[in-house]
C-alpha cells in the first residue's frame, strides 16, 4: 500500500518525529511504499543539519537522512513553515541574501501543494504531532 506521513513537531521537544520514524521503518519493512514524508509547523526543524545532540542520544535529523538514503525516501520540508523558522537550503539562502544554509542531506524544500498531492496519491496519510 502507498502511505504518506505528515510530521508537525520538531525533534526532541515531542516524541512525534521519533514515532513517525519507527512507523516509517516498520512500514518499509512490511513492504509498503512511503510516497512522501512531509514536515510542517515546527516539524521543519527535523531538517537542520546543524543539530549536535549528546553522543548518548539519538540524532533525529541524521536518522531521517540515513533512512532516506537507504530507501530513497522523499522527505519534503514546507517552504513557508521553513522560511518562518530559518530552515534553508543553499539556493533559498542565496535568494534571500542570507549568509548560511542548514538543510540536511536527503531533505528537499517545497510547497504545501506537496502535502495535498501526497494525500491524493497515497492510500493513507498518517499525521504525527504534539
Amino acid at each position: 500500500m502507498k502511505l504518506s506521513i505528515q510530521i508537525n513537531e520538531g525533534p526532541y521537544q515531542h516524541q512525534a518525529s521519533d514515532t513517525a520514524y519507527q512507523f516509517a521503518k516498520a512500514a518499509i519493512a512490511a513492504g509498503h511504499e512511503i510516497f512522501r514524508i512531509f514536515f510542517y509547523h515546527d516539524g521543519v526543524n527535523n531538517a537542520t543539519r546543524l543539530a549536535v545532540p549528546p553522543r548518548d542520544d539519538r540524532d533525529v535529523s541524521a536518522q531521517w537522512t540515513a533512512l532516506s538514503k537507504e530507501h530513497d525516501l522523499d522527505l519534503v520540508v514546507c517552504i513557508a513553515a521553513a522560511q518562518r523558522r530559518g530552515v534553508m537550503d543553499a539556493a533559498e539562502a542565496k535568494r534571500q541574501g542570507l549568509d548560511a544554509d542548514n538543510l540536511a542531506e536527503g531533505f528537499r524544500i517545497s510547497g504545501l501543494g506537496q502535502l495535498i498531492e501526497a494525500g491524493i496519491q497515497s492510500d493513507r496519510l498518517v499525521v504525527f504531532g504534539a
Binding site: 510542517y40 510547497g111 504545501l112 501543494g113 502535502l115 495535498i116 498531492e117 494525500g119 491524493i120
Partner: peptide, 10 residues
C-alpha cells in the same frame, strides 16, 4: 494548507 489545497479541486 486549506488555501493551497483549494487549488487541487478535491
Amino acid at each position: 494548507v486549506v488555501l493551497i489545497g483549494a487549488a487541487f479541486d478535491q
